[in-house]
Design a protein around this nucleic acid. Sequence first.
DNA 1: TCATCCCTGTGG
DNA 2: CCACAGGGATGA
Length: 258
Amino acid sequence: MPELPEVETIVRALRPHIEGRLLESTEAYDPALLPGIKSLSLPAQVRRLSRRGKYILIELGRGTLVVHLRMSGRLVWCKSGVPEGRMRLALRFPHGSVYLVDRRRLATVEFVERFEKPLGPEPFGDLSWLSCELAKSRMPIKAWLLDQRKIAGIGNIYAAEILFRAGIDPRRPARALAEEEVQRLIKAIPEVLKEAISGRGTTLADAEYRVPTGEPGAFQVKLAVYGREGEPCYACGTPIRRVKIAGRSTYFCPQCQR
DNA sequence: TCATCCCTGTGG
DNA sequence: CCACAGGGATGA
């Protein structure tokens, strides 16, 4: 579900509600989450709420509560009452609660002393390192972009949109990209992600993702290829194709992307 | 680098 | 019934 822009949007919306506030208790509605939070000692102040890749980091005094929403997880802020949907966890504050709502129950929560995951760099700032990293890999460029160890935060929607923007066929081996194409990629990655953040993320028709205040994201109106199999490319009219890469549906324009 | 699995729901 | 869904860990 949420990729970097959605997670960033969630963190920004939640931050004013919980940063600096006292997390008093938790309530697990799903026993599967208990092992992950058993070492959490409360109450504890939320020192910082941040994002790394697609992970949400709730930094507390003696460690960090790490949330990953996976496919269908949502975080919802409620001053009072409870949200709709399958609740798995509540984080209780004096002035309200953060609920983890998660239809497929794939989201994960764990309390750790230090956040350590094998994540690549964030997809912003100086991305010139891409050039030599891509040259090392035979993976299809789409699969490479999805690999969180190589670059953090890009998921299935934005990988497709980024490659469309860069005019690159998603099936091509990473190492086969010409320098000029790598430069287009370096430009397209932060462009697409920042535009998506500005639009507060993508909410698809079957929508799990919401800004924690409840509204859907607005970026879906701008999707050029994702989910558009058979529909005409906005740039050239050629029908958008769908293929499988690394087990995931991959949408692209066979005319614009070479 | 791939399939498989995790889990649940929806749609063809 | 099967395919598919915005994720990732795992083991061959």
